[in-house]
Simulated assay, not measured.
Amino acid sequence: MERGVRAAEQQTFAKLTYKARLIKAMFDAGVSWAWGRGAERVRLLVHEDNERAQGAYRKAGFRPSGVRVPFVKDAAQNELEFVLDR
């Protein structure tokens, strides 16, 4: 394997690891904030076509509730509700 290719792969892996940690830290902070204020459920909305965000929400423990709401920018599209119960 070429030296430059290996360095690029390592750099890409490091960026992905950093992003995963950052996303987890953001979820942890938001959920902790909500629990600290007495919330029994945390609710997130995500565009129906944003599979990447849906995957991140699932990985953080959220699950789809089945609720769909019209997307603010285009009522012909939907957002899906994801929830995390205490």
Rank of each mutant, 00 (worst) to 15 (best):
V5A: 11
I23L: 15
M1D: 01
S65W: 02
Y57Q: 03
A56Y: 11
F71W: 13
R63W: 09
Q54I: 05
V46H: 08
A25H: 14
G55A: 13
E9N: 11
D74V: 02
Q10D: 07
H47D: 00
M26Y: 12
D28E: 11
E2C: 06
R41D: 09
F82K: 04
L16G: 00
H47W: 05
A14E: 02
R6C: 06
R58P: 00
E48D: 04
A7S: 09
Y57S: 07
R68E: 09
E79H: 06
D28F: 10
V72R: 15
V5K: 11
D28K: 13
L45Q: 09
V5C: 02
E9F: 12
K73F: 09
V46R: 01
R68C: 05
I23G: 10
L44V: 09
L22P: 12
A25G: 15
D28S: 05
A76V: 10
A76L: 01
A29G: 06
E2I: 03
V83P: 03
V42H: 01
F62K: 06
W33G: 06
V83G: 03
E2K: 04
L45H: 04
D28Y: 10
A34H: 02
R58M: 10
A39E: 08
R21C: 15
A60M: 05
F71H: 11
A34R: 00
E81A: 06
I23F: 13
D74A: 04
S32D: 08
R37C: 01
G66N: 08
F62I: 06
F13G: 07
L84K: 08
Q11N: 12
V69R: 12
F13R: 15
H47C: 01
D85N: 04
I23P: 12
A8L: 12
A39W: 08
D85E: 08
V72T: 11
V67Q: 11
G61D: 03
L45K: 10
K19Y: 14
R58I: 01
D74K: 00
R37I: 05
A76C: 00
A53F: 05
T12Y: 12
G30Q: 11
F62D: 00
T17C: 14
A29R: 15
Q11H: 12
D49Q: 03
N50S: 04
T12V: 13
Q54G: 07
A25F: 14
R41Q: 12
A8R: 14
V46A: 07
R86V: 09
S32Q: 09
A29F: 10
S32K: 09
K73I: 04
K15L: 14
A53V: 05
D85W: 02
K59W: 00
W35S: 10
T17I: 08
G30Y: 03
V5N: 02
G66I: 04
T12W: 13
R43W: 10
M1W: 01
F13Q: 15
E40K: 14
F82V: 05
K19L: 15
